[in-house]
Design a binder for these strands. Sequence first.
DNA 1: GTCATAAATTGATTCAGGTCAGTTTTCTTC
DNA 2: GAAGAAAACTGACCTGAATCAATTTATGAC
Lengths: 251, 251
Amino acid sequence: MDKDNDLTIRQPVAAKPKIPPPSIFAKPFARSTDPGVVQLLTEDEQAALIAISRVVEFRRHTVIYPEGGRSRFVYNVISGVAETYCLLPDGERRVSSFLFPSDLLGLSENGEYVATAQALTPLTAYKMPFEDLARLVRRDPDLDVVFLCKLCHELRQAERHTVTAIHNDARARVAGFILWLWRSEVTALTDDTTVTLPMLRHDIADYLGLSTEAISRALHQLETGGLIQRRGPRALQLLNIQELRRAAREI
Amino acid sequence: MDKDNDLTIRQPVAAKPKIPPPSIFAKPFARSTDPGVVQLLTEDEQAALIAISRVVEFRRHTVIYPEGGRSRFVYNVISGVAETYCLLPDGERRVSSFLFPSDLLGLSENGEYVATAQALTPLTAYKMPFEDLARLVRRDPDLDVVFLCKLCHELRQAERHTVTAIHNDARARVAGFILWLWRSEVTALTDDTTVTLPMLRHDIADYLGLSTEAISRALHQLETGGLIQRRGPRALQLLNIQELRRAAREI
DNA sequence: GTCATAAATTGATTCAGGTCAGTTTTCTTC
DNA sequence: GAAGAAAACTGACCTGAATCAATTTATGAC
């Protein structure tokens, strides 16, 4: 129960003034690896975005949108964590990404969602009709640049994920994943070293191209080595971040 | 020598009217998996792009731009093949992408090239000052949409690459790579089944997260199985595309 | 709280692919 | 065309992760 509260704001979104400011649009590079690059939108631009947005809530394990569905809406995560996955013909699930506050969901290539998006925790998000957004962007070139940059950033992140996932062993992949989670989570604002794992081992395994058993063993290794400490299956304590980064081959 | 001629137009670009039409802008989705989606620019838009572009040539193994360099130019491949890679602290090379005619090179997140781009074959490309391009895009929202879609498409391709690379064995990865090359090469226009491999085994290995030996063995396997035939180290004949697609787990 | 079920962990075995070594082929330069 | 160098291939061996099986721990319903 504590864990859920850590991850999301559970209070109902009743009065509009009470909701947090639009995350991604206010700081599209909040999670950039380059901390110098933060691009802000003007008040007017934020207001215009809020005007076409609706705040929506999803409960744990709810589908936000289904693979193959007509992509009419774009979402911008406010709080909580989501994942996207495709279902293969043989029934396998293939996790393609995890989304955190400020991340953008649902942009598609050809008007069709390419993956199913599902809430892993209670989740709140801005929901924008794609058409309205496109119209807004068309009128405001600056807004467009923000989107381009955001996409570019995501592209780089996807490339980075490929490269690290492909060339590292299980221990390094898991170490890297933990660090990524740590940096992604809202709790990163306070400088505590607790990481919450809102997804199943199965999802992590799939995302990293490993088996669930390999995840367990890698966590065990990292714990034995004194880099982390497991506090139940959903929480980790980072004991030695310097060593973790080395284990993830970031150094 | 024959091979080089297959891949690139070697004649000097003297008279402007003789150069081929701007590839990507004319058909940004030429290599999309969804053949229905082809978005064309108007004559005016193409002319505007050509006006700010200069056609440049690179010889084999020439660096187009270096990692970390100030990203002042964006390139659009006309003919030839390029690769991008990062150099790791330990001297390792990490190949992040291969670029074909109509592909876009050099878009960066923060004004700095994130990888080195190198020509694998003689290469011609449109070279555009980023500033001019940005100004053009700012004035013409339609152009912007083209770029957004292109980026979106590349993002999906990167995700697809991750997913396939991570979950498949060596044989499947190599089969998939061969098919991707086949579909990417200019020769795909004629329906011949020859695939040219302009890059080294080392580069393929790195891109797919395998060893060079594993590439050799996988090619051997595919040849033994009657799916392909090796015609020297730089050329392959596809004998059974249906089976190749199955081997690549595309079906 | 107890029970039922799902998830996570641990151990034993197997196998794909990495590594190392050696050979053959191809490319380059004279 | 010949010689040297680089790249590609092949084989032998070994490591790391998948798989299978069993146990422990956590979660959710009552």
